[in-house]
């Protein structure tokens, strides 16, 4: 019997040490992964702080010189104040409208019963499979016929609804107990009331997640703004950055300075919403 106890104890011990080793291994892998992810960003920051003549000198990952003039040069190279304004208006419009419309549509798909609901939902999902490049020219032609080229309408309206947003929120809403709806209904709330008073407050993490996705989509979008704007006054930040890559050479240090600045809003939004973001991804199991 002593032997049996000893053996069990040994097993427990070895299990503990093995767990520790496992955890160490996992952390090492994560650390390596983090390093791989962070290095390009670090290099971007370093390059943005270099004087031009050192651009191609042996790469130090950490900055050794601090040439902040790259930042002012990037800012002055083009009317970036106007570009930021355009990006903010466009991204703001996309975020607000996507969250609003996706939430309404997702509520309908999750709660209402009507003929063809699931088929309709599948059709929505199916649109996610169509690559944007396929509909680029038709979309552009529609905007063109509407006379919307060079307007905020062109930048926002075609992206007010997203199938992904509807899908994300529908999955989320299905996790909210139906009994809450029923209780509210007994208390006399209508459909819209239930959506506004019950569903929306309970799905804050889901809405925040969609908001972050929509923000990143809008802020980083390049092709659509490129296509529907001709007037330099309607350009967005991403279009402005592309200008630093010219036919006769790229101004790397200035380009990187501009890119660092343009990345900050995304970083801020992500850090602010990170808690909700991870929570809701874990709940719905949606891949980003």
């Amino acid at each position: 019997m002593n032997l049996a106890i000893a053996r069990t104890r040994a097993n427990v011990l070895s299990l503990k040490t093995r767990r520790r080793w496992d955890r160490l291994a996992i952390h090492l892998i994560l650390l390596a992964g983090a390093l791989v992810m962070v290095t390009p960003f670090l290099w971007m920051v370093t390059l943005s702080l270099k004087p031009v003549e050192l651009t191609y000198q042996p790469p130090h990952l950490l900055p050794t010189r601090f040439e902040f003039s790259n930042y002012t040069r990037a800012w002055e190279a083009a009317p970036f104040a106007r570009y930021y304004l355009n990006s903010i208006v466009m991204t703001g419009g996309i975020v607000v409208s996507q969250v609003f419309f996706s939430s309404l549509a997702a509520y309908a798909f999750a709660r209402l019963r009507f003929p063809g609901r699931d088929l309709l939902f599948l059709v929505f999902l199916g649109t996610m499979m169509v690559p944007f490049h396929v509909i680029l020219i038709p979309s552009y032609l529609i905007i063109n016929r509407l006379g919307w080229v060079d307007s905020y309408a062109a930048l926002i309206v075609p992206r007010m609804v997203s199938a992904f947003g509807i899908f994300l929120l529908r999955q989320y809403y299905q996790g909210i107990p139906q009994e809450l709806d029923e209780a509210a209904m007994i208390d006399g709330l209508g459909r819209l009331g239930i959506w506004w008073r019950i569903i929306v407050p309970l799905s804050a993490p889901g809405l925040a997640t969609l908001g972050i996705f929509a923000f990143m989509f809008g802020w980083n979008d390049f092709l659509w703004p490129l296509v529907v704007t001709n007037d330099p006054d309607m350009r967005t930040v991403q279009l402005g950055l592309a200008m630093f890559q010219g036919r006769y050479g790229t101004q790397w240090t200035v380009l990187m300075a501009g890119t660092v600045t343009a990345t900050l809003p995304t970083l801020a939004v992500f850090l602010l919403g990170q808690r909700w973001f991870i929570q809701s991804i874990a709940q719905t199991g949606v891949k980003g």
Binding site: G92, G93, V96, S97, A153, V157
Partner: peptide, 23 residues
């Protein structure tokens, strides 16, 4: 409640079409 909802819808619509061409 209803008012809030309508306000939201109107804001969303306004956001969507500020750039309509003057024509």
């Amino acid at each position: 409640m209803k008012r809030t909802f309508f306000l939201l819808s109107i804001i969303a619509l306004l956001l969507a079409i500020p750039g309509l061409p003057s024509g």
